[in-house]
Amino acid sequence: MSIELQNIHYSYGQVKALNGVSLSIGGGATGLLGPNGAGKSTLIKIMLGFLTPAEGQGKVLGYDVRNEQKFIRRLVGYMPEDECFIPGLDAVTFTALMGELSGLPRQEAMKRAHEVLFYVGLGESRYRLVDTYSSGMKQRLKLAQALVHDPKLLFLDEPTSSLDPTGRQEILELIGEVASSKDIRVLLSSHILADIELICDRVVIINKGEIAASGRIEDLKMKNYQLYELRVKGQLNGFRQELEQAGCRVEETEDRLVKIYTPPDFDRRRIFQSAARNGVQVRQFVCSQTSLEDLFARVVGVD
């Protein structure tokens, strides 16, 4: 396991930020999702050893989050959300400096800096001052500095923010490759659910300081709800009311496609029984694919 947390509690004064968080994350790429104020940042701070939990135990890459923060940060790469750099330095010097601060010998840091800059696609512009880089280039540079010391685990905070669609696609491909073929575990915190769905095979959804859902995305989608798409004829009001009372969410699209999200263990025959009772004719019934967005909305309790 790369991350193992047990019953983590943390409060900012009277405000409880994390309330008994327990999770374990293994290899591959994991998405960290949650609305603002859910406790994502506090959780990352605890995992990086910036905050000491009030209660609970935790290990990141086998090191204790309470006492071995330096060891954790040596083995972890962090790509911040903000645009951040040291003005006046060229990309290769900047990246080498970051490698050296992580514990690489000076010459090795410089060598690795060249390598990772080529890897993230900044090879040709590695001697340019970072001040002159575009937003997309700065994003790649942040990934390079996070990778330079060959971390075992990468924390990526909104890695595709401020990128155009092409740039976003390229950086996602890079992250995907790092996670899948370079044996580096990735924890990706993002508000863009599509990014997480594309890169990660696992997700941790955190809400109000508690883990709302955690596991393989495909499993969670199946476990938490089913989505059925229907084409119907007749008055929907009674049908909709009855299903909503049974715990389903019913949506109607502009082209009169009815989407029914059913709770776990909901017998789909009840949909037909309800339709019959309300005089609604079901002309098409499809068990549909659900998205991460649907899952997120459901476990966090928002539309």
């Binding site: 990086l48 910036f50 330096k70 911040p80 645009e83 951040c84 750099f85 040291i86 003005p87 601060l101």
Partner: peptide, 13 residues
């Protein structure tokens, strides 16, 4: 100004 401090402190420093 350039938010570089977080880059330093995310390392064993």
């Amino acid at each position: 100004r350039h938010k570089a401090i977080q880059l330093y402190f995310a390392r064993p420093l």
